Amino acid sequence: MNFYDVACTEPPIDLELFGICDDKNAERAYTDTGKPENWIAKVENKKKYTLTFTAIDKCVIKDKEEEGRGRCDGMITSDDHIFFIELKDEKKDWIQDAISQLESTITFFKDHHDIEIFKYKKAYACNKRKKIFKVIDNEENLRFFRKHKVRLDVQAEIIVV
């Protein structure tokens, strides 16, 4: 399983603002700069880091692979950053499912690559219907961090620092 497969990565992007979309039409997630109304997650990159988006669901891990195990929609990487991103468009009961998909993907990644090369490691559960920040139980955050050494956020704004 290659999370750096060039067939699944988009060209690097260094814009201050762009979005991540998932049209749910059996195609993989992708970045967008022109239609904010389609964005599920908004990426703020004020320092203009060179970022690479990789589609995980339907590309790194295809639909028939690893059945029964979740996977998130994509990841953003730079020399110092790795952000795992799960995109949702649901009204209720979506957070635990998103966290489970993120955890599964992080485990897949660690099984095949060294996550410790990244200084900033975060997992984002994003929902198009809930753009505001959702406070996560401190115990859940701590459990997630202790298990994966990755910080967890439930919000649709990905801020690259």
Rank of each mutant, 00 (worst) to 15 (best):
M1C: 13
N2P: 08
N2L: 07
Y4S: 12
D5K: 03
V6D: 12
C8V: 07
E10C: 10
L15N: 14
E16R: 15
E16L: 11
E16V: 11
L17R: 08
F18S: 10
I20E: 00
D22P: 01
N25V: 06
E27L: 03
E27V: 04
R28C: 11
R28Y: 07
Y30P: 00
D32P: 01
T33S: 15
G34C: 12
N38L: 09
V43M: 09
E44Q: 15
Y49V: 07
T54L: 07
D57E: 09
C59Y: 07
C59S: 01
V60M: 02
K62G: 13
K62L: 12
D63P: 09
K64I: 13
K64D: 12
E66M: 11
R69V: 05
R69T: 07
R71L: 04
D73H: 05
M75H: 03
M75L: 10
T77K: 04
S78P: 07
S78V: 10
D79P: 13
D80G: 08
H81G: 01
I82D: 01
I82F: 02
F84L: 09
E86G: 02
E86H: 08
E86K: 06
L87H: 01
L87Q: 05
K88I: 03
K88F: 00
D89Y: 08
E90D: 12
K91C: 12
K92P: 00
W94I: 02
Q96E: 14
I99K: 02
Q101E: 09
Q101S: 08
L102V: 01
L102M: 11
E103C: 03
E103H: 09
S104C: 03
I106D: 00
T107V: 14
K110T: 12
K110H: 06
K110P: 06
D111R: 06
D111N: 13
H112N: 13
H113L: 08
H113Q: 04
F118V: 05
K119C: 12
K119E: 15
A123D: 03
Y124C: 00
A125I: 10
A125K: 00
R129K: 09
R129L: 13
K130P: 03
K130F: 12
I136M: 14
N138G: 14
N138A: 13
E139I: 11
F144S: 05
K147I: 09
K149W: 06
L152W: 06
L152N: 02
D153K: 14
V154W: 02
V154S: 03
V154R: 03
Q155R: 15
A156R: 00
V160G: 05
